[in-house]
Write a protein that binds this DNA or RNA. Structure first.
Lengths: 144, 144
DNA sequence: CCTTGAGTTGAAGTGAACTTTAACTTGCAG
DNA sequence: CTGCAAGTTAAAGTTCACTTCAACTCAAGG
């Protein structure tokens, strides 16, 4: 089995056929066509799909994923090095997101202690004073 | 200033007025009305809004948030203890999410080493063998 | 051949979480 | 009082990430 049908892709990636067609329309994956206009996927497209699903778990939009994937070579099959470079970038994003969540967790822990959650001296959310001055809300903890 | 107008709420919480009206329609927050039908918010509603935005950052849907908030007392202003209980529950959710992301990070790190990403022996995604057998895709790392 | 499961399309639908719009009404400083 | 910023509503619109539908065509085993 050289090329994969959309059914194969769906079965092997765990992504619905409709989603695969959608990804193709959005320029996230590619396929060639048979004489009868059916999609045939190269094996390495599975890797693209895998990358997409991982990136989504990290909280990245399809638009951003599309941009990242656009950096893979057009003319040749991506090498391990190509994928490694992309993965490393995602790992950094993932670590940033983990750090954000940990900050959130630590501050929420503090707020459990005082039972405040948005009261005056709460470090997590302080709509009264600090945030009113900055004109923004709870977002400040998230992207400080 | 005893009660807050919707403008005050928006300014102090950083959440748009339209969103506050939406939250009210969805039963996430409450307000009383003036004789002229304008919304007036009790100060502690700010805490609800704060809780909503934090929970959203943890990746919880409004529906789940609504259910959690429904556990707060209807008849009285929530006490610190009420909020503390709710916060503690969210902290657990947050920790679970952090753990998931860390697992993802560690496995992605391994995959950077081998440059595979969905190749046969990759621990992160293995659509060929293990997943084909289970009939699911990359999801397995996320909720193992 | 023929049947049947697999695949094709464009267009419309879904659900979450809001925002925008239009047409009004209220609240309050001067 | 008046003027105007701030508030009200229902309904429609938006974005994201898909799914569903209807009406086909293709591929391949018997």
């Amino acid at each position: 089995m050289e090329l994969l049908t959309i059914g194969d892709m769906a079965a092997r990636s765990g992504v619905a056929q409709s989603a695969l067609r959608f990804y193709e329309r959005e320029g996230l994956i590619r396929s060639t066509r048979t004489g009868g206009n059916q999609r045939r996927y190269e094996r390495h497209e599975l890797r693209r799909v895998a990358f997409i699903r991982i990136a989504q778990q990290v909280g990245v939009s399809l638009e951003e994923i599309r941009e990242a994937l656009a950096e893979l070579p057009e003319n040749r099959t991506p090498t391990k090095a190509d994928w490694a470079r992309l993965s490393a970038r995602w790992r950094r994003k993932l670590e940033a997101r983990i750090a954000m969540m940990e900050r959130l967790r630590d501050q929420l822990t503090g707020c459990i202690g005082c039972g405040c959650l948005s009261l005056q001296r709460c470090k997590l959310i302080n709509p009264e004073d600090r945030l009113a001055a900055r004109g923004r809300g709870p977002q400040m903890i998230i992207n400080p």
